[in-house]
Simulated assay, not measured.
Amino acid sequence: MRVGWAAVLTLAVLVGGCAAKQEQPATVVRARELMASAEGKSGDLVLRCEPSDADVLLDGVEQGKCSDFSGVSRSLRLHDAGFHQVEVKKRGFYPYTTYYSPSGARVTLNVKLRPLAPEGGGAP
């Protein structure tokens, strides 16, 4: 029994001693700083779409047409931290879906929807 307790005590001292003296790597410290600063960030998402009259949905809620968010002073504003689903869709085209997390910066998203049927109408 005595050897077992001595081994546990030695291990506890070694682990506790190493953990107390060890500093976090600079990358871990920087990552924590970035995570803390990202909380509560907002972001502006500028949308440039083909076709420009495609519908824009944010987290499943319709926001307007893509052209509503395509200018210098017009953008989709996000105020909540975390990932948001951004969907661009129009009848006759495959929908486009991506995820965006506000970073405090203005970001431009270029979307070109693909038609469901190839142009030209079909087989020769």
Score class of each variant (00 low, 15 high):
Thr97Lys: 06
Leu78Gln: 03
Gly104Cys: 09
Ala26His: 10
Ala81Glu: 15
Gly40Asp: 03
Ala19Gly: 12
Gly16Ile: 12
Glu33Phe: 13
Ala117Asn: 07
Ala81Trp: 12
Tyr94Arg: 10
Ala123Leu: 09
Gln24His: 05
Leu11Tyr: 13
Met1Thr: 04
Gly71Trp: 09
Glu23Asp: 11
Met35Asn: 13
Thr10Tyr: 12
Arg77Gly: 00
Asp55Gln: 09
Phe93Glu: 01
Thr27Phe: 11
Ala105Asp: 05
Gly122Arg: 10
Ala36Pro: 06
Met35Arg: 14
Leu47Pro: 03
Arg77Pro: 01
Glu62Gln: 07
Pro95Phe: 01
Arg48Ile: 08
Asn110Thr: 12
Val86Tyr: 05
Val29Pro: 06
Val111His: 00
Val61Asn: 02
Leu78Met: 15
Gly92Asp: 14
Leu116Ser: 04
Gln22Asn: 12
Leu109Met: 11
Gln85Trp: 03
Leu57Trp: 07
Asp55Cys: 01
Ser52Pro: 00
Gln24Asp: 09
Met1Phe: 11
Pro124Asp: 13
Ala54Trp: 00
Ala19His: 10
Val3Tyr: 11
Lys65Ala: 04
Thr10Lys: 07
Pro95Asp: 03
Thr98His: 08
Ser52Thr: 01
Gly104Met: 05
Asp68Val: 08
Ser67Asn: 06
Gly82Met: 02
His79Asp: 13
Ala123Lys: 10
Pro51Ser: 15
Ala31Arg: 12
Val107Gly: 01
Arg2Trp: 07
Thr98Gly: 07
Ala6Glu: 05
Leu14Arg: 03
Val111Ala: 09
Met1Asp: 08
